[in-house]
Design a protein around this nucleic acid. Structure first.
Length: 454
RNA sequence: GUGGAUGUAGCUCAGUAGGUUAGAGCGCUAGAUUGUGGUUCUAGAGGUCGCCGGUUCAAAUCCGGUCUUCCACCCCA
């Protein structure tokens, strides 16, 4: 039988030791900040019932859901008409009732509703788990990737938005990534659509506006025209698209434009309040009002937050917003939540480009004992045990291989210290400690060895 | 889902008027060094040329399909 070539599915990755050390550095940093603000961890299953997921992310999102084939003789239960008509959607419904989670927010909403009696609101939770999207992979885009979510649910207070941005500030400051936080508000966008008389085309307008940075104002206008938005409305939109300047100037201008839309004005007030708080706090990270920021999923209703790295061309590395009624579809009305999600994989890519991982983070132990044979092993094992109990990562090479092999192995693993104890050392009750970086070595007693390595 | 590029040794890549045993660097293994790695020198191992099919006396090379990775669009962390 021919050996099959090993491979993994498109858009997925293995993580080797060095990568895991670096990833854990990211996760540990993020987790530390989350805990620092009083958020509690939860986890939810990799798969959810498809009914939980479908319809929460828009049509595009539904297309990107990974669906899991039912077990058993699923095909027998499919009615003939579905097969004959090649009714794909109908067939999917009949043969698949589970799917891999697409993000952590919807499963969280499901969790909150299901456990509502055990939760005391407002509930502050964090969740770090992989999610899956059947997207076509490219740079910074994977089919399996990790999200680090923090959400507060059951509180309308804008202080939550402020706190989340403080968290963003803390995380990226700790990771040494220069970031910029872009803020917007769904209510402002709704207000804009309203005052230009195109509320029905809200989606088309925001998607087009979102591309302003990338394709320029003319193309944006072109796209909106193509989507059936009236020339008159587009004309009315121009002052907003070309709005520049400082926040102080932007807000009055915006409020004037939105003066006939109570929703729009509310969004303005909310955003202004958040920004005032941030200004008072004096955070490290720059933040700005970006009216073209429309990203975020269908369920966002208030603040929209997006973070980009300043020094690296990469999609957003963190994003989120407020959702007023995500739990509503699961039968719990009137519970508002706000949250953000850090994209660990993209943060990894950014840190790689910046060469921003700390050197000290090491995958290996601090000291390796060379294995010279049974007698010597017997002499070393108790000391290795003592080192470990003293909190020093220590190991013994498992085979009595050639010295060259053992030292080469330690070298490749980046182990900084080697202990050699052969007949000579055993006789003198000593241990030869070798510094692999400097090449120096010295004979030490057991006590001195432990002290030295500590 | 749409369009474009890519695939040769473990890794990075050479290799077309189709023509004997497909190359380099790095890495790996062994020796120089019977208790000393990371430097040096010498030797060696390692390839279904992504996969399937077609054209041809002959295909890594030309053609078709398929998969992979990457880029743009769509959308997103």
């Amino acid at each position: 039988m021919a050996a099959q070539k090993p491979s993994i599915p498109k858009g997925t990755r293995d993580f080797s030791p060095i990568e895991m050390v670096r990833r854990n550095y990211i996760f540990d940093t993020i987790k530390g900040v989350f805990c620092n603000y009083g958020y509690q961890p939860i986890e939810t299953p990799a798969m959810e019932n498809l009914s939980t997921l479908i319809g929460k992310y828009g049509d595009e999102g539904d297309r990107l859901l990974f669906k899991i084939l039912n077990s058993g003789s699923y095909l027998e239960k499919v009615d003939d008409a579905t097969l004959e008509n090649k009714d794909q959607a109908g067939l999917t419904r009949q043969i698949s009732e589970k799917g891999l989670r697409y993000d952590l927010t919807v499963p969280f909403a499901r969790y909150v509703v299901q456990h509502r009696n055990d939760i005391s609101f407002p509930f502050k939770r964090y969740q770090i788990q992989p999610v899956w999207r059947a997207d076509r992979p490219q740079k910074g885009r994977y089919r399996e990737f990790f999200q680090c979510d923090v959400d507060v649910i059951g509180s309308d207070s804008l202080l939550n938005e402020v706190e989340l941005i403080q968290i963003i500030d803390d995380v990226f400051t700790k990771l040494g990534i220069k970031a910029i936080v872009k803020l917007n508000n769904r209510k402002i966008l709704a207000g804009i659509a309203e005052v230009i008389g195109e509320s029905n085309n809200f989606g088309h307008i925001t998607v087009a506006m979102d591309k302003l940075d990338k394709i320029g104002i003319d193309k944006v206008n072109e796209e909106m025209l193509a989507k059936g938005i009236s020339k008159k409305a587009i004309d009315k939109l121009q002052p907003i698209l070309s709005m520049e300047g400082k926040l102080k100037e932007k807000f009055p201008l915006l409020m004037d434009i939105l003066k006939d839309s109570p929703t729009g004005l509310k969004g303005c007030e909310e955003t202004k309040a958040v920004m005032c708080h941030l200004k008072d706090l004096g955070i490290n990270t720059k933040f700005e009002l970006d009216l073209t920021l429309a990203r975020g999923l269908d369920y966002y209703t208030g603040a929209i937050i997006e973070v980009k790295a300043v020094d690296v061309a990469m999609g957003s590395i963190c994003g989120g917003g407020r959702y007023d009624d995500l739990t509503g579809v699961f039968g719990l009305e009137g519970v508002s939540g706000v949250g953000i999600s850090f994209g660990a994989d993209r943060i990894y890519d950014v840190l790689m480009e910046l060469n921003g991982f700390p050197e000290a983070y090491q995958a290996s132990s601090k000291v390796m004992f060379v294995n010279f044979g049974d007698e010597e092993v017997k002499y070393c094992l108790p000391v290795i045990d003592k080192l470990r109990k003293a909190g020093i990562n220590a190991e013994l090479y498992p085979d009595a291989a050639r010295m060259k092999k053992q030292l080469g192995w330690a070298n490749n693993k980046g182990i900084p210290f080697i202990v050699m104890a052969g007949t000579e050392e055993i006789k003198n009750k000593k241990f030869m400690l070798k510094n692999m970086n400097k090449g120096e070595q010295e004979q030490l007693t057991e006590h001195e060895l432990i002290k030295k390595l500590k």
